[in-house]
């Protein structure tokens, strides 16, 4: 209904092989792939390239568009800044030295390789996670996690959270818009009042949203009681593992093992 709700939705509807895979297999393979990336040694360029090939291939089979995964894969990039210091942290052949305030930093070749490897590992992992989200409806993901032994209570909480994420984000946006509508800014600045005053307004909004959410949870609880809820959160079990799921799972395992071997040759 509102614009940003769609901006939140990462699922790309489709009928591809990947879409129809059992969500459990998808979760397991994604995690396995990320673990494999993390285990690849620094500078395992060939294995990195192969892993990216796997992602591209999966993207093509899933029919989500190569561009989609690629475009969204830079979400984690700002964090690379935290790893910049790895360049100066690993002993190796010195490349250059930088004097920055109290720091006397020496860049090394091993450090540079470490840094680039970290960024690539992260970039590959994020793309696989994007593919998982793009081809799996969130409720199916929840079913998968339930089967993978995530506590029932947590699954229930997360399911409610997912349902009301959109409703409450809408409410937050309305509050923000109302604030904007009332704060007539004469110039492009930081807004009126002192920082304390502005923080207080924001805090009041958070408090108001808290109360509305609390009261909503009361009404939801009533609606649940009205439909026979007694404290147990029952769900049906809609997923069955098929042979094809096992096959793809086994293939994916072999592939990650292969990547590990390639990465260490």
């Amino acid at each position: 209904m509102s614009i940003h709700v769609n901006a939140f939705d990462r699922f790309r509807a489709g009928e591809s092989l990947i879409h129809r895979l059992d969500p459990r297999i998808k979760v397991v393979v994604t995690v396995l792939f990320i673990v494999s990336n993390v285990l690849l040694p620094d500078g395992a360029w060939l294995a990195f390239a192969l892993a990216w090939g796997v992602i591209l291939l999966t993207g093509v089979v899933a029919d989500v568009g190569v561009g989609y995964t690629f475009k969204r894969s830079f979400v984690a990039l700002p964090f690379a800044l935290a790893a910049v210091t790895a360049i100066f942290a690993i002993p190796g052949r010195p490349l250059a030295s930088v004097h920055l305030g109290p720091w006397d930093l020496v860049a090394t070749d091993a450090g540079l390789i470490r840094f680039v490897s970290i960024v690539i590992r992260s970039w590959l992992s994020v793309q696989m996670a994007i593919l998982l989200t793009a081809t799996t409806q969130f409720p199916d993901l929840m079913h998968a996690l339930r089967h993978l032994r995530m506590p029932r209570l947590l699954v229930a909480i997360v399911s409610f959270m997912y349902r009301y994420l959109f409703v409450l984000s809408d409410e937050a946006m309305r509050l923000l818009r109302a604030r904007e509508a009332r704060s007539a800014r004469l110039t492009e600045g930081d807004g009126g009042g002192s920082i304390l005053w502005r923080a207080k307004i924001a805090g009041n909004m958070a408090g108001q949203l808290f109360l509305r959410s609390y009261e909503r949870s009361d009404r939801i609880y009533n609606a649940m009681l009205a439909r026979g809820y007694t404290g147990q959160h029952l769900t049906l079990n809609p997923h069955e593992m098929r042979n094809c799921d096992w096959l793809i799972g086994a293939l994916a395992v072999m592939l990650t093992v292969f990547l590990q071997v390639v990465g260490r040759l």
Binding site: L165, A206, Y214, S217, Y229
Partner: peptide
């Protein structure tokens, strides 16, 4: 717990939404 489940679920959504609420500091 029966009352807690919807409460915690909605409150998790609340925290997510409340993280959108910001206030300008400077620059």
């Amino acid at each position: 717990s029966e009352r807690q489940i919807p409460l915690m679920g909605v409150m998790a959504a609340f925290i997510f939404a409340a993280q959108m609420i910001n206030f300008p500091v400077a620059g």
